[in-house]
Amino acid sequence: MSAAQHRRVEVMGTIVTLDLYGEGLEDVADTLAAAAAATLREVDRVFSTYRPDSAISRLRRGALSLGEAPPEVVTVLDACREAHRLSGGWFDPWALPGGVDPTGYVKGWAAGRALEDLRHPRVRGALVNAAGDLASFGDLDGAPFRIGVVRPDAPATLAAVVELTGALATSGTGEQVGHLVDPTTGAPGVRAASATVTGPDPGLCDALATALAVGGDEVLERLARLEGYEGLIIEPGGALRATPGFPFAPATPLSR
């Protein structure tokens, strides 16, 4: 039975939890978590659109050219272009008002970056949860991590439990109406109440979840054809639609 070590980092306007599973982690957890926290803060420093001095803010207002930007900005924008292509145009950081905004990719990507800092011979499994964008490696005593997806119309209950391999991201409006923009119209628009994507790349999961929330079935069909990625739509009424391979966890007895 693995022992767990949990740490949390307040960054990017939210809380990121770091969970490490394995034996004898007491004396390494702080060091690993500190490295992950530093990574998250660095990502925030470069990519926060709420910091006027961040590279992305300066890029957006034309005070910085792409050639002068930190290399990770180029990396992220390249990845956003790929996500734009894979989503059929439904994920489009260039369609947002105020200039390019890769936020819909960055939080998942940041979770993945932080996860890499948690690798250690004694860490058998690790989970980074950046406000619903999850990145993981390994497992929990040989069993996959189980992640609950909340019902958007009844957030006290879970719509599904997912057996996690790699990454998972959920996008939805919650009470924040209008934070997803339909790139075909530039107007706020949502076709699914909640959209979840699983797959190997945390940043791409984040971007595709945004696309799925806006694009609905059209994006779900694209996900069904995309190797390694699965999608789940929760309709406003609570009904579920998922790609055929979506990793729903089998029902298991409760722990008490």
């Binding site: 991590f145 609950g148 006290a156 996690l164 722990s255």
Partner: peptide, 21 residues
């Protein structure tokens, strides 16, 4: 949600957005 998670044997939750920090 915190109560539900305790009874569902899960390691994390993903879902709709709100101020939870």
């Amino acid at each position: 949600q915190a109560m539900a998670a305790q009874s569902a044997n899960i390691q994390g939750v993903s879902g709709a957005s709100y101020t939870s920090a």
